[in-house]
Write a protein that binds this DNA or RNA. Structure first.
Lengths: 346, 346
DNA sequence: ATGAAAGCGCTAACAA
DNA sequence: TTGTTAGCGCTTTCAT
């Protein structure tokens, strides 16, 4: 302990914290002694116990890291969050989400890691075991893109309205047979066409909301293809399932619930010998940069991802200050690119 | 405190830890009392202070998160690391690397967050301020893909030999004019052709080692294009710079130091109207899945990324057990795809 | 302006 | 088998 080296006891605390009244000379003496003993400042563990705060925000990614982080949306969200949290002196602890059906339902870190707040990326329902464990521990929770749940702060975007606007754009272009490619419906992931029963059983609301957006535009999709994750290859698989039929019955437009899925659809359509947008229009959601689609630019709904992360960060700040931040729904914006065009003459 | 509720004091500790002798009846009584008071197990802060361990591994990503995580290599490494650390009860704290030249050199978390070990992804030299801060704090460090530094554990791959083998593959195909596209040379990032002076000043050894690999195969690159980050768009820019000249002098093969760069080169070559591999061969490094290149498969050097993460995890385990884990150099393997072929007849 | 003392919640040694 | 005690390193009253 530096105090032994210097002369005082807890005056050292003042010397380091800067708070409290202390003579410049004394402070300097303490700092010098610390340097001599290469003591590098207060031990964070002691400080944390004393203050009851760990300075750590646990971020539960909705999936195995590998899969989550292949999704630029999660990454950019995390980036915005880290940028906001850093200046507040808060660090982000990565917590893997449920890995597989036969794995333990919640990561041990959720049960026992020190954290002041937790963030659930990608939703969660009330009976989510992670949510229950956190509430048992009394750790406040911020949920991104989930249900509106009592007792937790929810940050989302107005995706339903965004998809509705996008769909109307397609209707205005004369499209009548519109198919859609969705995000996963729930923990039981599938890559397949979904029937009405399956659609009725959607538990992850993000897929449901974006599907509702299509209906809001007065459109009933000719087919709904459900994917197990927002990845390019699943979009390609969807394209093969949706676009292999004859031109007379094939959809003339595909609305994908993410840009990654949409770019997979574009690639799949090309593999089938279809031109985009002459033979089929493709639209996405998110507003990512997709350099490999160049020179095409995807028509999509742009969501403010980094801003979403920052909003989560501010909610955390408010929570830690003892406040009760309001839920937030951020606006989205339609961006028309080159992958949508007039419906082909039938 | 549960002890008040139950009947005992620190017997509760035994009840929760499971260690030590305790009567089943007593344990049950404690657990019941805990449930009644909804006490959710020992406070991690107290436990941490007592044990002197935080259970946290700080991972310093070599860059802004946004950029780091667009690189699948970092993500998969992190994934392998998290998978290994989880069962050990260790969590990963994300620490942003240097963000910009005018930013503070090290993130405050490096100075003051509680962590038992730190991992530096993507290198670091001896005078790296992060490394210095960590050593001042007495926190052991594992470095991935960096220099061999005294006092830190280094985990890497045999990339030099891998690039040499790859280059020999091209030589065997008859290529004589081979250009190369490199990873960043150091913190001062550029997107430009590099002259000899610039090459002599490489500080991030990963670029240097992979460049040396080309020479090991007896090849002097006709041009070296330096990129500011391992991203598709920088590969495309490199392709335009390297492949715009007349066929007689243009390189017939390009060795990129990452798959992302290589796929950018492929896209750029196509934009220039060149066929891959008939007009120009392109090879990469990493062994990623690149769905958007389909049906092409990149010729590349496959590195065991997840295994690298796991190796880092095991080194951390050994470090925390008081051992001194050895540096590791993991093997790589050439994978020939469809993007390299015989040199065009000149 | 500085020092003394208490206590954050826990666990490990020891005593009973 | 259980209870008592001490102390991890810190910050914060409260005295001096």
């Amino acid at each position: 302990m530096a105090s032994a080296a210097g002369v005082s006891v807890s005056t050292a605390s003042l010397a380091f914290s800067g708070a409290g009244p202390i003579a410049d000379a004394t402070r300097q003496r303490v700092l010098d002694a610390a340097a001599a003993l290469d003591y590098s400042g207060p031990n964070p563990l002691g400080r944390q116990l004393r203050s009851g705060r760990s300075g750590i925000v646990g971020v539960v990614v909705g999936d195995a890291l590998r899969r989550s982080f292949r999704d630029p949306v999660s990454v950019q969200l995390l980036d915005g969050l880290v940028d906001t949290l850093g200046p507040l002196g808060l660090g982000v602890l990565l917590i893997p989400g449920p890995t597989g059906p036969d794995q333990p339902p919640v990561d041990p870190l959720i049960e026992s890691a020190a954290m002041d707040v937790a963030v659930l990326i990608w939703g969660g329902t009330l009976d989510d075991p992670a949510l229950q464990a956190l509430s048992r521990r009394g750790i406040p929770v911020v949920v991104v893109e989930g249900h509106d749940l009592p007792g937790v702060v929810t940050i989302g975007i107005d995706d339903r309205a965004g998809v509705a606007e996008l769909t109307r754009h397609l209707v205005d272009l004369g499209h009548e047979r519109i198919a859609t490619v969705t995000l996963p419906f729930g923990p039981a992931r599938r890559s397949a066409l979904a029937d009405a029963d399956r659609i009725a059983g959607i538990t992850w609301t993000i897929a449901g909301r974006r599907l509702d957006g299509v209906h809001d535009a007065g459109v009933t999709p000719t087919a709904v293809y459900e994917t197990p994750a927002s990845l390019v290859e699943h979009g390609t698989a969807a394209a093969h399932a949706l676009l292999s039929g004859p031109a007379a019955t094939r959809p003339t437009a595909v609305v994908a619930q993410s840009d990654l899925l949409a770019s997979g659809v574009v690639l799949g359509a090309r593999e089938l010998g279809l031109r985009v947008p002459q033979d089929v229009s493709v639209a996405g959601f998110d507003g990512l940069d997709l350099p490999w689609l160049a020179p095409d630019v995807l028509t999509t709904v742009v969501q403010p991802i980094a801003e979403k992360g920052a909003t989560v960060g501010r909610a955390i700040e408010a929570l830690l200050a003892g406040g009760t931040p309001a839920d937030a729904v951020l606006p989205v914006e339609l961006r028309t690119g080159t992958t949508t065009g007039p419906a082909p003459r039938g």
